[in-house]
């Protein structure tokens, strides 16, 4: 889905998910590894503040990925 949106729209599509090999296999170009399968962009077990903090970090990382020129599939990992 990621690959076909990028192809059809000609715009960067950043995928945030947890299983990196799958994202590589399906051909996603800009990849941000998420927190966990049931909550890729949050960490609710750590409480609302930590949850939102990690969500913000991941989204900022995704936006950084979107503004970065790349020539091949690239992983953008949160510090």
């Amino acid at each position: 889905m990621t690959r076909e949106i990028e192809k059809a729209a000609g715009i960067p599509v950043v995928q945030i998910a947890t299983i990196v090999p799958i994202m590589l296999t399906v051909g996603s170009n800009r990849i941000v590894p998420g927190v966990a399968i049931p909550h890729p962009v949050g960490d609710p077990a750590k409480g609302p503040e930590a949850d939102k903090k990690v969500r913000r970090e991941l989204l900022l990382k995704a936006l950084e990925a979107m503004t970065t020129p790349i020539s091949e599939q690239t992983l953008f990992e949160r510090k």
Binding site: M1, T2, R3, E4, I5, E6, K7, A8, A9, G10, I11, P12, V13, V14, Q15, I16, A17, T18, M23, G34, I37, P38, P40, V41, L59, A62, L63, M66
Partner: peptide
Amino acid sequence: AERFGREIGAQLKEAGVDGVILTST
């Protein structure tokens, strides 16, 4: 999934969207 992507991509292009964040579980 590929068809969803093609259709969504075409609509986003039409709408002038500049970038996408796609979250998956």
